[in-house]
Simulated scan of single mutants.
Amino acid sequence: MRPVRVYIWKFGTVIETGKKNKINLMKKVLLAVFAVTVITVSLQAQGIRLGAKVGTNLNKISGQSFSDGFDLAYHVGGFLEIDFNKKWGIQPEVLWSQTATKRSSFNTIYASEINPLNNGEKIKLDYLSIPILLRYNVGGILTLNLGPQFGILLNQDKTLLQNGESAFKGGDFSMVAGGQLNFKVLRIYGRFNIGLQNINDIDNKDKWTNQQIQLGLGLRF
């Protein structure tokens, strides 16, 4: 039986290595797309402004497995304001963003998969979020934002399931809509992010999507 066990172990290692390679490739592709987008539009822009931002996340993961209420977390990062003219522009950002939620029916739905040694109710996921937002300057101090957001999962809780399996997918895709008030160097913003991708990496019993309200302050340099 020893050769069989060795073969199974090696096969599992190959699968795990394949997942890691796919995630690493996805990270490189997203960062490359972000860099190319910024460089391309910068060449055509009339004005470019750099800034930093910090704020709170009110988020939940939809699905029967988790609590239906919103939980508090945080985000921090940097942004560029790139104007094509007085009305239109884009706003690419790079953010560290945390998602927090609580288990609801997770232990019931995945009773055979959960790790009995992990009894924690709270779950936290850290993402590298890359929103690329269209800017529309309404007039005065108000700017509206709309666009896609790509998320790369930075941490993966290997104690949630048995055998160190991953419960969440390594990437996420969402749409972002919101508004921003501009006071010289100060930015006050609010936005809603709705996930379009199922981040459940276990099976298809329950569909999980991120939903997030962001409120924060930014400073333009």
Rank of each mutant, 00 (worst) to 15 (best):
F192D: 07
S42A: 13
I114G: 06
K28Q: 12
G47H: 15
V6H: 13
L160V: 08
Q46L: 00
N59K: 03
V33Y: 12
N57C: 11
Q180G: 05
V38R: 01
V14L: 13
G170N: 08
I23H: 12
M1C: 07
A45M: 07
W96K: 01
T13D: 13
L161V: 08
R220P: 06
G216N: 07
I82C: 10
F192S: 10
I202H: 05
A45W: 05
N59H: 11
D203Y: 01
D126Q: 03
R220D: 04
R187Y: 07
I90R: 04
F173Q: 11
F106A: 03
T13L: 13
R49T: 15
G69N: 14
G18S: 10
G178S: 03
P148C: 10
N118M: 04
N155L: 07
Y110I: 08
E165H: 12
D71T: 07
F183S: 02
K124T: 15
V14C: 01
V41C: 02
V38N: 01
L196G: 11
M175E: 13
D71P: 07
K27H: 00
K122E: 01
T40L: 10
I114S: 07
Q64A: 14
Q149N: 14
I39C: 10
E16Q: 14
G18T: 01
G195C: 08
T13G: 14
G216M: 06
S166F: 01
A32K: 03
L142I: 14
L25S: 15
S97V: 05
G139H: 08
V33R: 09
L142T: 12
L144K: 02
K102G: 02
I141Q: 14
N59E: 10
V33D: 09
P131M: 04
Q46E: 14
G171W: 11
V138D: 04
L117H: 12
V76A: 15
K53W: 03
L154K: 06
L125R: 04
F70N: 07
I15P: 00
Y136R: 10
N145E: 10
I114Q: 02
S67T: 10
Y127C: 08
N210G: 02
L196E: 11
Q64W: 07
K169I: 01
N137D: 13
A167C: 06
L196N: 11
I23G: 00
W96F: 06
V4N: 00
V6I: 14
E165V: 00
I90M: 12
I132D: 08
L217G: 03
N59V: 05
K158Y: 03
N193P: 07
G47A: 15
K158D: 12
S129D: 15
V176I: 15
W88I: 15
V6R: 13
I39W: 08
V14S: 06
V41Q: 09
G164H: 05
P131F: 01
D206K: 08
A73M: 04
Y189T: 05
V14G: 01
L58P: 02
Y189F: 11
D203F: 02
K28W: 06
G218H: 01
N163W: 12
V138T: 14
